[in-house]
Design a protein around this nucleic acid. Structure first.
Lengths: 231, 231
DNA sequence: CCGGGTCTTTGATTCAGATCAATCCTTCCC
DNA sequence: GGGAAGGATTGATCTGAATCAAAGACCCGG
């Protein structure tokens, strides 16, 4: 553990409310690791040995079956991942892989569960974290079941636009292949969906997107706070 | 509260570990209600006022946007629903509607949150409940993103078959319209999917399904414990 | 600077699933 | 019993998206 990161970790929702001692204990047990890009951190089906907290970089969560694979989510700093599996002492439902050089804090599952058992405040913090993870997946599911792929793309652009300060320009935070998989479409189809959105003032230049008709885009997308509102 | 139901409620994962007093307090605040079929219990967008526990009957959770609607889940006794919204003091992401005459225990959200704040064991019980809800949605999402509609149907039949004792016969626990929406397909397409499965020994007679070639069906479905294993 | 790899785009074609339409069937209510 | 209403099935057609194929664009290592 580098001392340097401690304040940021301590400030996380999950750790903010716990006692100094408990926090020190967890950090003492934790490993700080730096991984190159494209490293498989977790394989679905394995037991959850560590809780992961991403300090720097980017991590992709993947699901697969029968030889197919899909991107389930992208984790940014300072997100935690696979908390539920750790708590349940269960098997990972998703794999995780770095998509950039990443710095990751790994806390042994054992320590998390021990602390959960004895620290009520920690349990409450976990409740909050889990609730928002749950609600995020529910939103995602609604997005998937209720919208066409062009609508999903349009709404994703609007969300990113808002998250980036609504300046009229959006920078895609991941490559198009990954975006396609997140939105459950093929890269080819994503390309065509961008083509469709040209008519709604969406100009694409590599990872830079310019929006010149936000109203039109929103009319098409019909953003819904029960789906798109970032938490 | 009818005394009669208390033991069953007390036995629920969520309440098993809490103190007698806390439990008594919750039950004292709770309302027991019987609703006819097709009653809207919750509307998405509303604030979460109550935690719901289904004692008898069946409840459908629905998501909607832009005039479209989809079935997100079916709750059976003794399931809880919309726990996450209650805990976060947030807005419902899903609506709920009875699909049969149902008996429902309603606990004021206020009481749940108060108890969460003071009872560490309750917090831990909630952690377990939330974790499994979360993992259930993740499984669902993988199912949706990684499989075709025929595969989803085939796997659903296999799951139900296992859950019902693997006797070679499955009884559909909901009507086909609902099943279609759960599996994210139209009723017409569900009908055709059943047609496709005839070649794999699936005989449909109203809600009764007979399986005569389980091996063949499984070869098609490729069931995966990380998606289909019921918790 | 070259060559190979990956990512992206574009075009042609196919396919899964939706939609539209008609019929049949059950249920249920007068 | 009869008829209305909703559910399920079946057929014809349409469409959104996947697949197949090929060509550019970009990056990276030698």
């Amino acid at each position: 553990m580098r001392e340097h990161d401690l304040p940021e970790i301590r400030a996380l929702e999950l750790f903010r409310t716990m006692s100094e001692e408990s926090f020190a204990e967890l950090m003492h047990a934790a490993y700080l690791q730096t991984f190159p890009t494209q490293v498989q951190l977790i394989s679905e089906g394995d037991l959850a040995d560590f809780l992961f907290i991403l300090l720097e970089g980017r991590v992709e969560l993947l699901g697969s079956t029968a030889g197919r694979e899909t991107t389930m989510a992208i984790i940014k700093p300072f997100g935690t991942f696979i908390l539920a599996a750790v708590l349940m002492d269960a098997i990972h439902l998703m794999s995780a892989r770095t998509t950039e050089k990443s710095r990751v804090l790994m806390i042994p599952a054992r320590n998390i569960r021990d602390l959960l058992a004895k620290d009520g405040d920690f349990a409450r913090a976990i409740v909050v974290e889990l609730s928002s993870c749950y609600r995020a997946v529910v939103r995602d599911q609604k997005n998937l079941k209720l919208r066409s792929s062009v609508e999903r793309l349009a709404n994703r652009i609007i969300s990113l636009h808002n998250a980036q300060g609504a300046t009229g320009t959006v920078i895609l935070p991941y490559d198009k292949k990954t975006l396609a998989s997140l939105l459950n479409m093929t890269p080819e189809n994503l390309s065509r969906a961008f083509g469709t959105l040209k008519a709604y003032g969406v100009q694409v230049d590599n990872e830079r997107i310019c929006l010149s008709d936000l109203t039109g885009l929103e009319t098409l997308a019909q953003p819904n706070r029960l789906i798109d509102e970032r938490v």
